[in-house]
Amino acid sequence: MAKICMLLTEGPWQSENYEIFAQFTEAALDKGHEVQAFWYLDGVYNAIKHQKFPEDVPLPVERMQAVIKKGAKITACGICVNARGLEGGKEFTEGVSVGGLPDLADMLSESDTFVAL
């Protein structure tokens, strides 16, 4: 089984990358692969738990919670988090840790393959 590292640099509601990320990660985990992801730049917005939308659609954070529950390990860039006023990720959903680029460096060292979104 492979170790897959992923980078996500875009937030929800404006880019479809969160959805691609969730679908790919889910498929990879279902096949028994490990997925570690680093959320960088606006990618850190995917972790905010208090998402609301007037229509009844699956919320991006719910998609992310599902892949976290399946075993995806996610680290958000702390500089990006604080730059966006997200105060150390205090409103982040469970399972997303706040770290830094050295975490991405370690994920890259450990991984067999890498996908950027």
Partner: peptide
């Protein structure tokens, strides 16, 4: 957009792990 400089920050960052990529 910010990719020109964040890409360079990442270049420095990926060398900062345990294995010094």
């Amino acid at each position: 957009n910010i990719f020109y400089t964040e890409g360079l920050r990442a270049a420095v960052g990926v060398s900062a792990g345990m294995d010094e990529n």
